[in-house]
Amino acid sequence: MLPQRSRLSVLVFLLPPLALYGIAVLLPIFQSLFLSFFDWDGISPMLFVGFENYIRMFTGDTVFWIAFRNTLGYVVICLVLQLGGALIVASLLTLLRRGREVVKTLYILPAVISTVAIAFLFQRIYSLDPEGLINQVLEFIGLGNLQNAWLSDVGTVLAAVSVPEGWRFTGLYMLIIYAALLAVPAELEEAAKLDGASWWQTFWRIRFPYIRPVWITTTIIATTNALRGFDIPYLLTNGGPGQSSELLTTYMYKTAFTSTNYGYASTISVFVVVECLVAVGLIFLLLRRKADA
């Protein structure tokens, strides 16, 4: 639909970012795919093993499946906190008459704090000796028997490493959803109120369908970010105790840089990429189907 000169201009401006994307993103993915067919320690000559790494990953590596299960749990907790919290806060912000900017700033603040600082902060919050914030609150309200070493208990550690990640990005997604809610035509909501619709009916029948495209995009961003989550779980527990908080990303990192098995680590990285692509496809399929229903 553009004239020839305009198409050429668009192409000229698109080439640099596309080239940068290809070098920084696509090339490493293809390199990982290539390395996944080899046994290589980073120094010795590479030994071609074909699909042996993939067979080992799917049939002979129990740690991989533990990490995969933990990753799914990690993603679920992060999405509930990030998307659920973001939607609730964004909806409440539309009702707030004063102090909106202060609230938005406070919620977005964790996203700009150093990851290391967040990890150390939550180490202190979860601490049992000396008592961290959670255990102090439990003691104060008379539930001292529930005090726990949250990062050392195999029953709580996965949730404990997931909460900081969920808390960290809730404000970012809140801003995206809040901007989408502001774009909902006020006359539609006013018409619904005149027809006697409740707040929930107005939200579910008018607001949410209107922001559905933004919700789909936000869900995809949050899901892929959670599937690639690494820094906070690694800093808090390094996958421990045992493999109770081991994620695919932490397992991949340790396989590459601790065990120096770059071929097998590349196999895991390929799986992570495929996992993200499958997740994006499922999100589109499920949410689009609900939109069409």
Rank of each mutant, 00 (worst) to 15 (best):
A111N: 11
G171I: 01
I283S: 04
L72A: 14
A111F: 14
L79N: 04
A179Q: 12
Y251I: 09
G166M: 03
L81E: 02
W40C: 07
G240W: 13
P185D: 00
S9E: 04
L26M: 05
I176G: 08
T156F: 11
I216F: 00
G99C: 06
R212M: 03
C276F: 05
T59Q: 12
E131Y: 09
Q147P: 12
L26E: 00
F203Q: 05
L79A: 10
E131W: 07
I176Q: 07
F122V: 08
S269M: 03
V137I: 07
V25C: 08
T115N: 06
V272C: 13
L109G: 01
F284W: 12
I268P: 06
M1N: 10
V116H: 05
L96S: 06
L133R: 05
N261A: 11
E165G: 12
A192S: 14
F30Q: 10
I211G: 01
E275F: 15
R56C: 01
V272F: 04
T224C: 02
A191S: 15
F64G: 10
T71A: 06
D61L: 06
Y54F: 15
R100D: 07
D41H: 10
L181V: 07
W40D: 01
Y126S: 00
L87T: 01
F140K: 10
T260I: 11
V89A: 06
I141G: 02
V270D: 13
T62C: 00
N135I: 13
L106C: 10
L72D: 13
A119Q: 07
V102F: 11
S91E: 09
R289T: 13
T250M: 10
V76H: 08
A192G: 15
V75P: 03
A149S: 13
V116Y: 11
F284V: 13
V214R: 00
L235P: 08
L121G: 00
E275M: 12
G84K: 08
L121C: 11
F68N: 11
M174F: 06
K193S: 13
T260K: 14
P209T: 12
P233H: 01
L227C: 08
P241C: 06
L247G: 02
E165K: 05
L92C: 11
L96N: 02
L182E: 15
D39T: 13
F284M: 10
L47I: 10
A186D: 02
N53M: 14
E190V: 09
I206Q: 09
L27H: 13
V280S: 14
G155E: 11
T249H: 09
S266D: 02
T223A: 08
V161N: 03
P17F: 05
V112L: 08
S152W: 03
L128F: 11
Y107V: 08
L143I: 12
L96V: 13
T156V: 02
D129W: 10
P233F: 01
V89T: 00
P241W: 01
G99E: 05
R207E: 14
A180G: 02
R97K: 15
L182G: 15
V163T: 04
I55Y: 07
L96P: 10
L188K: 05
T115V: 15
T156Q: 05
V273T: 12
L282C: 15
R168F: 09
W200R: 14
P209Y: 08
Q4Y: 09
R98I: 07
E189S: 14
S269E: 07
D153P: 14
